[in-house]
Design a protein around this nucleic acid. Sequence first.
RNA 1: GGCCCAGUAGUUCAGUUGGUUAGAACGCCAGCCUGUCACGCUGGAGGUCGACGGUUCGAGCCCGUUCUGGGUCGCCA
Length: 590
Amino acid sequence: MMQSRTHTCNELRIGDAGRKVKIVGWMENIREVSASLAFVVVRDFYGITQVVVETEEMMKVFRDITRESTISVEGTVRERASKNPKLPTGDIEVVPEKLEVLGRCRYNELPFQINRSREADETTRLKYRYLDLRNPEVKNNIILRCGVVAALRASMLEHGFLEITTPILTASSPEGARDYLVPARNHPGKFYALPQAPQQFKQLLMTSGFDRYFQIAPCFRDEDARADRSPGEFYQLDMEMAFANQEDVFAVLEDVLPPIFAKYGKYNIASAAPFRRISFNDAMETYGSDKPDLRIDLTVQDATKVLSGCGFEPFAGNTVKAVVVPDFTQPRKFIDQLCADVEVQASSKPYWFRLDENGELVGGISKFVAEKKDAVTAALGLKPGCFVGLASGKRSAAQKTAGVLRKMLGVSVPGHIDTERYEFCWIVDFPMYEIGEESGELEFCHNPFSMPNGGLEILEKAERHEADPLTITAYQYDLVCNGVELSSGAVRNHDPEIMIKAFELVGLGENDVKAKFPAMYNAFCYGAPPHAGIAPGVDRMVMLLAGEDSIREIIPFPMNKNAQDLMMGAPSEVEPQQLRELHIAPVEKD
RNA sequence: GGCCCAGUAGUUCAGUUGGUUAGAACGCCAGCCUGUCACGCUGGAGGUCGACGGUUCGAGCCCGUUCUGGGUCGCCA
């Protein structure tokens, strides 16, 4: 008896002619050219091979097989009479002698055509993901993902990092995203939580004496989805280094990422190390975003001063930001659509005017600008043909709206973005504190466990009102690529004294630190190394590398926007007995 | 939770000012075709126009409600 197969569907070449072979796979298509001549396409993971049918008996057998059934074909390899140069196996075909149906497809109509599944409705694709994944275009993203993960792992090991797994069932953490909770059967009323990130564990590993840790870590957050954010679960290349500072972390990622982006990316141009560094404040001021897409050549300018008192009501008492596009030739309809799109995304209305070819102010709010024409022209560096988009509001709102304006103009006005490249940058010097919008009180801006720039000294100064706490920055950083936030990281605050002081500034104290992060606080009291780390999102990296706009395209079995797995039917109801064991009362239904 | 967009054949879509029997492409079925490779040609089957209600002599189209999906804001230390 022959083995289950002798060759894959991407293996046979002209040199195999005359050989007895057995191939297996899915019957993708049958092209009947006459009553006794047909071509059958067999597809497996590796590729496709053509089987030629030349007898009426064989034709009868093949005609009874539904497409997408799995079959095995034993036969002889033969040189094709008419070759197909587009196929690796295009020089040969298999003349079948023995045919076996291995798994019959019971339906002659599928929910979608396999080779066009990407055009199908996403709900249908997700429900029949196992069919969707048969499409080589869909499957290739998953293969790419394997390659990227393997390369990341290899590179991290090469850089001396140890891969250490951390618990999936752990304790709920009091801050951050909503947790996924798991009821504890043996502890009525108590719950485990799935980790939002292995943050505390990796810091405890540093305190334990491990020097360089990494993990391709599953993270769970019960937050709503976005096109670039999978609901429920995602993966991070989580890493942490002991006796390390910001520079050490940057050096590792600047060494690890570019070669992988160059090798696996859809585009082969990636920024070289060292990546550009932009302070949070500069990013907001110049790009109107803390995740600027540096492929766009437009920037945001301040127009508050030059437009103050121009008489346009929305500008009165507000910050005004401008995005100038030279040689602008788009029609009015384009501008209206752009403004509508910006308003939707920024939830704030943008304004505009133009300088026409003769240098005359036209359109939009030009009549309010007219009086200050010379000053505005000089301040913004305007030339005939310029379009000026404007955003106003409180400082951060104006920046944000201008950022959306910049991005949309950059993407839709030809010539302002080079999409075929990867542009990395670090966003650094995030503020440590902010005034909470609801409370009006001083609050932590981001991670309360980042090391403040200036250490204990600057915190004590702030306490004595000798320094403005709002100007204190943290050793916290984001890695951004093509406008996508790949990662957040920080130099951690490993000193209990500084930690308590940082909490005291927002009206909390030692007891709060202890209560919220007991293990970490206790551990740091036993001599902790200074440490720093970061956790680039694996899914987002693969999405960038694959050139996909939706994160679901690079996840093998994605959930939909509402965090449902349509294929498995999750989440699902469970038996009342299961709930009783877990001390949970069934939900009363209306 | 707010806002925007979409929902018509198995799939992707078109459907004019509200007007006879709702169309196309692909797929499916049948027939023809001896070198196809997105095979070709001929014919056929296939529709609760997401659901409910309203306006109207008449609704796929207008109005209201609702459901589903996608995008986005909030949220994501």
